[in-house]
Design a protein around this nucleic acid. Structure first.
Length: 644
RNA sequence: GCUGGCGUAGCUCAAUCGGCAGAGCAGCGGUUUUGUAAACCGCCGGUUGGAGGUUCGAUUCCUCUCGCCAGCUCCA
């Protein structure tokens, strides 16, 4: 150590403090005096900020190594992977211009300005080239450049987009990263070398607008992913296959639950008997629980005078999502995109006292929204759907209590359907909003207070509230860890104003109630689609359209099979007999494919003994037992499913 | 809405260079009476999404249109 070198102190995550010469790199500081740094370490946070391992430390710092196991480490890994892919693209297609290429959940993408879309063949070639770049193990080096010089630099290289990005940056100095012949503007940090990436695969290509704006030119995006081991990459690809296998559009058709047909129109769902039955079960449960929770259930028409929608503000704020109005006699009528105005009119049909509040109107209300064709997606995004809607009218001091009740109710319902993990967001005041900032702040505070009182962890989504009030959104996580937006609780300052809603207070004067919109499942269609994927079509017994299938082995047990089926039906189960002249293996195959939870095989042995042979879905042979034992077994399974 | 890809029997998919549109499953008829994921034989099944064009001839090439898929944008 040269005499006179200044020493700095680094603190490692385990609390160890180490003195190192100023100017030494994060890598050197991390591995200390002895040996090399573990190859798992991709980068490091310096005082909490992710940095390259080659970053020179200039002062005392808290250091933490970053590996692929941390979100920040994964981001670095995928970000460098994107650069590797970009280098491969530039090698093969020098005229492709670089734009941006971030890490995303589960992978990365890079957008290129290129004269034509990339084909699957291109992707193969690019991937091969990317593998070669990984093999070559180019060191990834950071350098800094004055901003204007960097603009010139990229212009000279024909990278117009990069030049544009740099021009819009606020800093006077920008950082560039290079690997081999490739150089890109980038904030970093990055891996130490291209060989650090072990397993990389390109997945797909698609168009994407420059800066995400549809008025801008279309770029060519390539998606890929990368992992530290081939095994992890394979596991990820297997998960993608699993997602395909569970696709509700495929299962919905295979299980004969729903279809959507050209002749009907895009985004419009036909519920076949089995799908309709599952829906009925969901709706029955919903109604029962709402009545228990003190809701009053209402019905409202599918169309109403356009004037109603003018009063509600939908014509002004929501027109692009509405079907065009239809002319009937002398006035125009509008297919309803929401249920709220109807519930408001029910509220308004009487004078209301403060003693009446809160009033809770619930409706499984079918609404129609005009969605642009490109956004339609199976059951998850449709044009006609049924909201499990409710509107609560309450006094301002009741907001927190009502929201708390709704939260408890929501989690109860979602858990009943097998979801146990949630992401909760509070969306605050957007730029375009009605209501005073004070009202917004107060209502937002009430939402947060309700969440806190329930011990629910949440994140703030700044500026993402609806124009009429702040909201809580709850996303459910399915069995594959995917998050789906379902439940929403929204405060509304706007409609009570617009419709001049009032209640008479203790003081005998008119007061304005607060309105809360809420949906637990969101839309039955979407929720059903999510359920199909969550359960891979194998609904829990309480929701299964057919719960029991009785299979005879030969015609000799035909009567017995019919008696047994009747017995199960009488016990309240959805039971069917398959008496076809087919081998039992074939009948089992069909019942398996239909995901029937319980199969009951009756042959001569059972006929003689007066028992039933029970087979569970997915192959479990549960043995022979008397009918009563089977009934108990299934009842227990139903009870378990509903309390899970 | 935009970019790209794709529409063939109820379903899943073939059809060379523009030359008689085919298979498996399903359905129907028959044989078989069967023990835990597919018995056997036969039959039926098509305006190749729709409209127009090029051509002696179009599933195939071109234009328009409808729909689906991926992504962008938007959202329950």
């Amino acid at each position: 150590m040269p005499v006179g070198t200044q020493q700095i102190q680094v603190t490692l995550p385990d609390g160890v403090r180490r003195h190192v010469p100023a100017g030494c790199t994060a890598r050197e500081a991390l591995c200390g005096s002895g040996g090399a740094l573990s190859p798992d370490v991709l980068a490091a946070t310096v005082n909490g900020v992710p940095m390259d391992l080659d970053t020179a430390l200039t002062g005392d710092a808290a250091l933490e190594p970053l590996t692929f196991r941390s979100p920040e480490g994964r981001e670095v890994y995928r970000h460098s992977s994107a650069h590797i892919m970009a280098q491969a693209v530039k090698d093969i297609f020098p005229s492709a211009q670089l734009t941006i290429g971030p890490a995303i959940e589960d992978g990365f993408y890079y957008d290129f300005a290129f004269e034509r879309p990339f084909t699957p063949d291109d992707l193969q070639q690019i991937e091969a080239r990317a593998h070669a770049i990984i093999q070559a193990n180019y060191p990834i080096k950071r350098m800094e450049m004055p901003r204007l010089k960097a603009v010139e630099f990229f212009k000279e290289r024909g990278e117009q987009y990069k030049a544009e990005i740099i021009e819009s940056l606020p800093d006077e100095t920008v950082s560039l990263y290079s690997q081999g012949n490739f150089i890109d503007l980038c904030r970093g940090p990055h891996l130490p070398s291209t060989g650090t990436v072990r397993a990389l695969k390109l997945l797909s290509s698609a168009g994407a607008y420059w800066r995400g704006d549809e008025r801008n030119p279309m770029l060519q995006r390539i998606y890929g992913t990368s992992f530290p081991t081939q095994a992890e990459l394979d596991a990820h690809l297997a998960k993608l296959e699993e997602i395909k296998r569970r696709d509700h559009r495929k299962l919905g058709k295979e299980l004969d639950l729903i279809t959507m047909q050209d002749e009907i129109g895009p985004g419009l769902v036909l519920w076949h008997p089995k799908g309709a039955l599952v829906r009925l079960l969901i709706e029955n449960f919903w109604r029962e629980q709402h009545l228990k929770q003190g809701y009053e259930l209402v019905y409202s028409p599918h169309v109403a005078r356009l004037d109603l929608w003018k009063t509600s503000g939908h014509v002004d704020y929501y027109r692009e999502n509405m079907f065009v109005p239809m002319k009937v006699e002398a006035s125009e009528y509008q297919l309803k995109p929401m249920n709220c105005p109807f519930h408001i009119m029910i509220y308004k049909s009487h004078l209301r006292s403060y003693r009446d509040l809160p009033i809770r109107y619930g409706e499984l209300g079918t609404v129609y929204r005009y969605e642009r064709t490109g956004v339609l997606h199976g059951l998850l995004r449709v044009r006609g759907f049924t909201q499990d809607d409710a509107h609560l009218f309450c006094r301002p001091d009741q907001i927190e209590g009502e929201v708390s009740r709704v939260l408890d109710f929501t989690f109860f319902v979602l858990r009943t359907f097998g979801f146990s993990e949630f992401e909760v967001y509070v969306s605050t005041m957007p730029e375009k909003a009605v209501g005073s900032p004070e009202n917004w702040a107060q209502a937002t505070a009430a939402l947060e207070a309700a969440l806190k009182s329930r011990g629910v962890a949440y994140r703030i989504d700044p500026g993402e509230g609806v124009f009429y009030g702040p909201k809580i959104d709850i996303k459910i996580k399915d069995v594959l860890g995917r998050a789906w937006q379902c439940s929403t609780v929204q405060i509304d300052f706007n409609n009570p104003e617009r419709f001049e809603l009032a209640y008479t207070g203790e003081d005998g004067k008119a007061h304005r109630p607060i309105m809360i919109h809420r949906a637990l499942m969101g839309s039955i269609e979407r929720f059903f689609g999510i359920l199909i994927e969550h359960y891979a079509g194998a609904f829990p017994t309480w929701l299964a359209p057919v719960q029991v299938k009785v299979l005879n082995i030969t015609d000799k047990q035909r009567d017995y099979a019919e008696t047994v089926t009747a017995q199960f039906t009488a016990a309240g189960f959805r039971a069917e007999a398959d008496l076809r002249n087919e081998k039992v293996g074939f009948k089992i195959r069909e019942a398996e494919k239909a995901k029937v939870p319980f199969m009951i095989v009756v042959g001569d042995r059972e006929l003689q003994a007066g028992t039933l042979s029970v087979r569970g879905r997915s192959g479990a042979n549960l043995g022979s037992m008397p009918a009563m034992a089977v009934i108990d077994l299934i009842r227990a399974d139903i009870a378990k499913g509903m309390s899970a």
